[in-house]
């Protein structure tokens, strides 16, 4: 599949090709994580419109298969360096709704104590290391994390993310080159969601596929349909296996679509309507739901039940978090340094 998909290209939606690596309970679990990310996202959008969420709200919609399918390929000692549109990965790594909602709303006792927000959530105990706003900065850090474990003879894998915009930074280049030279167990997911803020791919890069760069680094690269979660999962399982065997990093470009603006303040009027329609038909959750229904892995009632339960849980998390106060002012003066 080409990276720069437009409405002019294939009009038929390719069916999900079942992966031999997945069991049905795993399929249901992945579907649930995607739905959880979607419903969480919709809830944040509503809170933003109601003026109850502040700061940037960065939609995940369209990115669920890429985020969940990739993180799901990791093992229980591996580490995740997600970006701001990877809430799905947080759920895969066991994050609970209350903790995440507290952090999004920057309430007292939340992750990061209200010192940072906007999707930068880290939860060290869950092996989740958040990003910063400077795109590409966490690639060398994710590489260094597994440089350390490799020195100790451990075989953990580090997975991190970048976009079609962030892959134009110097730190992308330095980080991927360093990881390739050291043959580090790093999997870098390049989520090509077609827009870097308002800039289309044509403003950002001139190569056909971002994964083609792998040739220049001497690592593995592949571009895939990022709305097919089984394809994302299977591709990432192979990347993780290569990493564990000491074969070095992989660049996995997942083609997706950012279905809303850069953040909720952005009306994304610069996105052609036809392009949104093209990708709407490829909605990662709709596609997987159709697959699960057609294979009778889930019934329509099952889907409704899962969705209803998730919506209730998210509502409960909002009710829990929103009643709590903001952190007290003295938190702002703490932890500049640790002892």
């Amino acid at each position: 599949m080409k990276s720069k998909s437009t409405a002019k290209e294939s009009t038929t939606i390719p069916p999900i090709k079942p992966s031999k690596l997945l069991t049905d309970p795993q399929r249901v679990e992945m579907f649930r994580y995607m739905l959880q990310a979607r419903e969480f996202d919709l809830a944040m959008q509503r809170l933003n419109r109601q003026g109850r969420a502040f700061g940037g709200v960065y939609s995940q919609t369209g990115n669920e298969a890429s985020s969940v399918g990739s993180a799901y390929a990791l093992g229980n000692k591996d580490v995740l360096f997600p970006m701001h549109r990877n809430i799905g990965g947080h759920f895969v790594f066991g994050q609970d709704l209350n903790t995440l909602m507290l952090a999004f709303l920057a309430r007292e006792g939340s992750l990061m104590r209200g010192t940072d927000g906007t999707g930068h959530y880290a939860d060290i105990g869950r092996r989740i290391y958040g990003n910063i706003s400077h795109l590409g900065a966490m690639i060398p850090v994710a590489a260094g994390f597994v440089l350390a474990s490799k020195m100790r003879g451990e075989t953990i894998v580090s997975m991190t993310y970048i976009g079609d915009g962030g892959s134009q930074t110097g730190e992308f280049h330095e980080g991927v080159n360093f990881a390739s030279v050291q043959k580090l167990p790093l999997v870098l997911i390049i989520e090509n969601n077609q827009y870097a803020y308002s800039s289309p791919n044509s403003v950002e890069f001139a190569c056909e596929k971002l994964s083609d760069r792998a040739l220049g680094y001497g690592c593995f690269g592949e571009t895939i349909d990022g709305t097919d979660i089984e394809l994302v999962y299977e591709t990432c399982v192979r990347a993780v296996e290569r990493a564990r065997k000491g074969e070095g990093p992989s660049l996995i470009e997942t083609n997706t679509m950012r279905m809303r603006g850069h953040a909720e303040h952005d009306d994304f009027s610069y996105v052609p309507k036809e392009q949104l329609e093209y990708w709407q038909k490829r909605d990662p959750i709709d596609r997987y739901q159709s697959f699960l229904l057609s294979k009778k892995i889930l019934s329509a009632d099952d889907v409704t039940a899962i969705r209803t339960k998730l919506i209730e849980e998210i509502r409960a998390a909002i009710d829990y978090a929103i009643e709590l106060p903001f952190p007290s002012a003295e938190e702002g003066f703490k932890n500049i340094f640790v002892d």
Binding site: P140, A142, F178
Partner: peptide, 12 residues
């Protein structure tokens, strides 16, 4: 950037 970044990652 990679040298300092990798140092940070290793420190983490």
């Amino acid at each position: 950037s990679a040298i300092v970044g990798a140092a940070i990652g290793a420190a983490l």
